[in-house]
Every structure is written in C-alpha cells, then in structure tokens.
Amino acid sequence: MKFMLLLNEAPEDFALRDTPAKFDAFMGEWYAFGTALREQKVHVDASALEPPATATVVSVRDGVRTVEDGPYPDAKEQLGGFCIIDVPDIEAAQEWAAKCPAAKNGFVDVRPVFNLEEGERP
C-alpha cells in the first residue's frame, strides 16, 4: 500500500542547500536515501520543494479567491519535500521515514494515501 512521507525540514537544513562548503555532504545523504528507495523497489515518486519563502497560499471563500504570500502555518519546520512509497504496511513506512535525512533535524509525517478503489480500503 502507498504512503506519503511529508518531509518537514528544519531551517538549518534548508540553509545547507545554499552553503557550498556543506552542500555535497548534505546532498550525499539524500542521494543515498533515494537510491535505497529505488533499489528496494518502494519508490513511487519523490521530490524536494523550493524553500518555504517561495510559498503562496490560495483559498476560496464564498467564491472569492484570496492569494497570499505563504507559507501557512508559519511553523519552525517546513515542508521541504515528499516521497510516495509503496510498502506492505505502516511499520515498513515508518522504517523508511526514520532513514530519511529530514528526520534528523526535522520530522517526517507518514500518511497512508487515500485509495478510492473498492476493496483496497480497510
């Protein structure tokens, strides 16, 4: 079954993206994680996201669209990327979450992907 790992990164991890001296070491961990996902054939989709400063919040209330500079909410850890993995159960998904570099300074939300097809839902 599919799980989405929402990678909530700490500000210091976001900063590493723009720190040339530490960039390679930082990315190395991510490449290793991504390679493992592929080798174990659990990878469905994954991507990093541009930092929260580039976020925009859109909402529609009573038919009126509001667009604002984001992100919302303005927490310390922010969504920095996601992975969708296909694994047998939540235990396996948690194992992957714990291996993810984002878990070290930030945290990973593990969410089962909603499946509309009949029979698949518990």
Partner: peptide, 10 residues
Amino acid sequence: VRAKRKIKVA
C-alpha cells in the same frame, strides 16, 4: 532578496 527569489523560483 527573498522577494526577488520568489519571483524567479515561483
């Protein structure tokens, strides 16, 4: 700088 980066990246 942040605003200009957003114009570009977003």
